[in-house]
Structures are given as structure tokens and as C-alpha cells.
Design a protein around this nucleic acid. Sequence first.
DNA 1: ACGGTACCTGTTAGCGCTAACATACAATGG
DNA 2: CCATTGTATGTTAGCGCTAACAGGTACCGT
Lengths: 330, 330
Amino acid sequence: MTDVARVAGVSHQTVSRVLNGHPSVRPATRDRVLAAIEELGYHPNLAARALVTGRSRTLGLVTLETTLFGPVTTLYGVERAAREAGYFVSVVSLGTAINPGSLDDALARLREQSVAGVILIAPLTSTSLPQPSLPTDLPVVVVEGDPEGAFATAAVDQRAGARAATEHLIGLGHRLIAHVAGPPEWLEAHLREAGWRAALADAGLVADVVLAGDWTARSGYEAGRALAKMAGVTAVFVANDHMALGVLRALHERGRPVPEEISVVGFDDIDEAEYFTPSLTTVHQDFDELGRRSLDLLLCQLGSSSSVAERLVIAPRLVERRSTAAPEGR
Amino acid sequence: MTDVARVAGVSHQTVSRVLNGHPSVRPATRDRVLAAIEELGYHPNLAARALVTGRSRTLGLVTLETTLFGPVTTLYGVERAAREAGYFVSVVSLGTAINPGSLDDALARLREQSVAGVILIAPLTSTSLPQPSLPTDLPVVVVEGDPEGAFATAAVDQRAGARAATEHLIGLGHRLIAHVAGPPEWLEAHLREAGWRAALADAGLVADVVLAGDWTARSGYEAGRALAKMAGVTAVFVANDHMALGVLRALHERGRPVPEEISVVGFDDIDEAEYFTPSLTTVHQDFDELGRRSLDLLLCQLGSSSSVAERLVIAPRLVERRSTAAPEGR
DNA sequence: ACGGTACCTGTTAGCGCTAACATACAATGG
DNA sequence: CCATTGTATGTTAGCGCTAACAGGTACCGT
């Protein structure tokens, strides 16, 4: 910076002013400084700036180590939004084995780094997710999780999506609708099951066929084999598309055609869902939008310095394809 | 730090020494300092440390904005390895629309942040990927890309994987083996096609049925429809599992049973591949290992400060499942 | 002509930390 | 007993930057 100042014939402070867009710099001076910067290939040292201002323009992004469609897409959404807002994104994953202190460790790491705030992609239930020793000094936005907690949250309305999926099946005339659930430690698994139950209850139907899954196609396959043997079940709402793939495979193997004998609805609308056999009716979530809105929420907190526990909800959308139809004999 | 020093009754420099594990600190003194740190909840300011040392213990990770299995898994692999080595990971995605300057922008952003080095997940061909104005001052490791460039690279041996897949089909007795290729701007698409060609050439077979795809199940589906009409083709090597899914769907629709009439091999071994109909024979890549080895390569460069253009290759592995069989009439 | 008020630019201090040197004190050997 | 080494600690300077204040110059009204 001193070099730039010397070349431009000004003081280093004037260079700083140009860099920070301070208004009272004469255009001619500004141009000379910019020319010197260009000539020397100068780039400001952000560590020095962070040291003196106390702000690092870096956000922490904590995520589970999963290649699941939702969290990954959310990650990119947040990164892009952050970049456009002039922030860096420091990613810390919680690893595959989540132990009690791992979230604390992640937050401690990020606090050391003087991040301005943290976005936590944590689709687990509060009890499964190690509770942090509340970092009230650090703005946090939780994405896809913890609607009961003290933090601001942003999420797609899982319950509404599950309800829409189930009501679609009810509307087609199905009366015994099973559910293949996600793993119990995932909040989304609970909410999707809750939405399914609520829709059935509203229609006066029973909700007693629940099969446990773990998001993988393999677990969906196991559930599908069990479903194939159940006589009365004419439809199944599967908690995500990957498990739905397994269900389709099992039903196909067991000679239970979809949708003729059994209708299947998934959740997520992954890119491949349209190319399953048959193409999958599912619930679409706009994760990109979610990332963007989460960042807005965080920046809003930074601006107002008030840590309001705001709730931001994004509506999902049912995508009807070929895996659902009216039950036979109606 | 001054506060800690006062509480412990030492100088701030002694606190610094304790923090950095300097040997000549008396155990009693060290304990007092650690107690003071604990008592005050002190955490070192990394910006200040980075400013004075010139090293930020942060790595840049540049990636394409894709939810494709490989890049995402590599990302986590790198993050975990970096965390274990005590490094932060700052992620910059190149966005969906790659314009000429975007890689330069990403590198400039990271250089400003004083990252120690950069890991670039860039599975595109050198011509498709915007070439950076060589940052010789910044250690770079390219993952899954650019074997001709000046940088150190780490990659799974795509050509060997494709060759293994094709040789598997040849071994089963297939003579006319088609290929569904990835998009031309992807290096991996080229290498997989090259491996296919090489295997066919070695066996004295022709390699003239190539269908263009773009990694998506949709493009695979289109390719599959075309394949279904081709009389002599008894096997197809598809450049990734997602397209293979589309191929399977199209062949099923057109009444061409797999593997009875046509054998299909994919590439990637995504979690779902086992649950395709039929389960997919494919090529497995260990992306986790890849992430780890890439980091090793980068840290090695940092240590030796020599920017050797080392090549690190990881062997893939063919996974045989139910989508391949000997051609009919043999 | 003068003080006032803009506007522009320079000077100084310090953010929290580590490197380098300076100092103190003990242990050792001749 | 003193010089010599080693170990443990303190002191000083400075990393590159911004905030706060201190000039300096031009322009205004009176």
C-alpha cells in the first residue's frame, strides 16, 4: 500500500480511502491511485483489514458431511449469495460421526476465524444435533432445522409438502396410504411423517403403516419388499426420492406394477426423478432460493445487531408425474 | 492476550509461546498461562496472527457449482483432510455459467484472503476451463483435471476405468459396443471415451457408435431411445451412472431387456447404482481418498516451496452387477 | 480583507500477534 | 571463583491496514 501511495504521489491513507470508496477524494487523485494499483498489481491484505476493523467479511458455513441433494444444493445457494454480497465462505463439515462436541468445535473454529456470522445447515432434530453452548455473540441462522430453538431459521415447509403429497393420493381415491419414513434423527423425516399423518387424519383415514428408512435407495428397497406383501396398501408416500427409487425397484421385482397396483410419491425432486421407472411424482423444494433467503436473514441480523429468532418459510410444490394414479377397481 | 498475560503474571510473549508450543517454557508457567486462558475464555485472533506471520492456515477450494457425485464427495474429502491438518477451507464456486474471467476472479479472491494454497476441483478440459494467469506465487493442486498443465494434479485414472469397463464387455463376448459420452467440455468425458476406444482398438473392434450426452439422466434417456433402434449393438458403456439410469429407462420402455438384449455399464458407482433396474455394473472411484491425497500433495508443496508438477493417480475399480451379461446367441 | 465553511489530504496511533533480540538466572567446568 | 553455556522470560518493533484527528487550500459572504 505504501508502494502504491509512493507511485501515486499520495499518502497511504488516501489509497485506503480510494479502496474503501470514501467520497471526499478528488477524481484526478482517485484515478492516479487506481492507475498505481493497476500498475503494481496491488491487492489489499484482508488479514490486516480484519485486524483493524474487527470484521472479516467471512461467513461460517457448517454442514453435515452428506452428498444428499438438499444440503449440497443449499450450500451452493449460500455460497453464491455470500459471494454476491462480498463475503467469503469458510466451510466446516461436522463429519460423518456426529459426536456431542463437534458442533461446538465447529463454532469455536469459526469464532477464532472472526467470522461475521454462521449459517448452519442442520436438518437434524434438536435432540440428535449436539446443542451448542449458545453463541449469543455470534449471529447464527439455522437452515432446515430447529424451529424450536433460539436462532433465526429458514426452511422449506416440509409438513406442507408432505401434506400436499398425501392429499394428492387421497384425492386420487386411495384409502390405505403407507409411509416410508426417513431416519428418526432427521427433523425433515419427522415433519414429513407429521404432514402425512395430518392429511390422513383430516380425511378420517388411519395412519398405521410406517416403514423405517435411512434416506438410501437400499432402505427404500427393503421397505418396498415389505410393502409388496401387504394386501390392502394401494399407495405409499416415501420421504425422499432416493428411497422411492428403491421402492420402485422392489415393487417392480415383486410384480406389483406402479402406478397400476400401487402409487408412489417421493420428496425432493432430484434431477433423476423424472427418469425413474415410472417417472416419479414428488415434492419440489427450491434450495437455491433457500440459500439466498438464509443469507438475507443473516445479513439482516448483522445490520440490526439484534438477534431476532425470525422464522422464514418457503413453500414447496408438488410435481405430478407417472408414479401415481387412481387405485384399481374405482 | 495482554489480559491473559496479566492474570498469569507473565508477559504477552510468554502467552504466545505457550500458544505456539515453544519448548522453553517452564511447565509451571505453562500451566498458569493455560489456566488464565481457560478462566478468561481467551481465543487467539487469527487475523492478527495471519498478519504477522503472513500465513493464514486457510486453503482455497475452487469448485464448479454442481451437485454431481464426484465433485461434491471430493469437496468433503478435502475439507476433512484440511481440518485434520489444522487448515480452514474457504470455498469459492465458479457458478453455473463459466465465463473467461471467473477462475481468475476466484483465484484473486483467494489470494486477497492470503490463502496458503488452492485446491481446484476442475474436471473440465483445459480449453473449456478459463485458463488462469498462472499464479506461480500460489501453490495450486488441480483435482480431476488438466494433466497437461503446469500444476500438480491428483485424479482417478479415468482411462483405466473406462478400459476396464469396456474390456469387461469384450470379455463377455460383445463385439459392437456403443458409448454414451459426457459433454465435450468435461475432461472426464474425453478420457472415458478414450479408454473405451483404446480397449476396442486392442481387441480389433470398431468404435463408431458414440452418442452425445450431458451427464443428466434426460440425455441418457435420449441416447437410450436411439440405441434401442440400433440392430447390432449388444452393449453400451455409458460415461456416468446418471445417464445410465436414463439409458435403462429408455431400453425398458422400448422393450429391449437389460442385460438379455443389451448390456449396460456405467461410471461413478453412485449410491443408487445398486438399486437401478437392473442393478448397474459400474466403475467405482474413491473420491474420499482423492480429497485426502490432493491435500497431501498441496501440503507437500507448501513444505518444500517447490511447485513440482507432480501427478498423483488413483486406480478405479470395476463393480460387476446385473446389467451386464454375455450377448444372446453365444 | 477577514473568519467561516466546505472539501481534500496527511499524520499519528494502534488493532493482536510473533520474530528477533535482550536480559536474567541457574548449572556446569576448569 | 569466574567464564561459559543453556534455559526461561521480558522488551521492542513491526506486519498492513483503518479511525481519528490535524492541517491545508479554495470558496463563500460580509
